[in-house]
Amino acid sequence: MSLVEQAVIIRNEEIVPGYLELELRAPGIARQALPGQFINIRVGSTLDPLLRRPFSVYDNDKNAGDITILYKVVGRGTGMMAELDMGETLDVLGPLGRPFSLPENLQRVVLVGGGVGMAPLVYLARVSCERGAAVTALVGARTASELLGLNHLRGMGVKVMVTTDDGSQGIQGQVTDGLEPLLTESDYDFIYCCGPEPMMARVADMAHRYGLKGEVALEENMACGIGACLGCAHRVKQGQDYSYVQICHEGPVFSMSEVVFDV
């Protein structure tokens, strides 16, 4: 059951310009958190900024009780977070949301992450590896300096491939340019994806063409994180039409085939 915890900052480190890893000691949340779930962080204790900020669980050391998130400095909240020091505390609500499904018999999985969309995929890779699955990760970014999670993934024994929009590292082009050869060459059991919606839409389309099942993790402006405010709605298919689901509560993980992507 999710809870509110006063988490102590263990590490708050800029790993590449504009992107930080924040490690929090939050044993009650860490014990329960599963890949794909998120935590909702109150930044500061004043009325501005007012709302919590949601972040995917990037990594989780259940034994130590430490949760790591990956974040990009985009606004006031994340700007304030970047200034926090070791030993300070944050009010954290979690774990929240529906995790990735991890079928027991997964043999070969492929992860596709674009930019800060790597945030939910590293912990997923760790748990997949622990369960004995062979994991391939396709990591995309605009440019080499914005590639995220590579060292974590390589440390777990994940086969890592890279694409960049500008060709500064790996294959030049979009993640789908790197994905198609992978799907042609090998049989995968499952594909997981997180990134900008147009990218997820292309990946979902390609997965469908290759008959591969998969899941995506979605993002939207969020307030409560527990399904009450109905702010973080996203469209899913309903027959020929669509309906809205709440990303925080019914997601953030959804089957690729059910989402109506905003492209």
Partner: peptide
């Protein structure tokens, strides 16, 4: 969507 946005001390 977007359905919500934070504003100073409000939403």
């Amino acid at each position: 969507t977007p359905r919500i946005i934070e504003t100073p001390a409000g939403m």
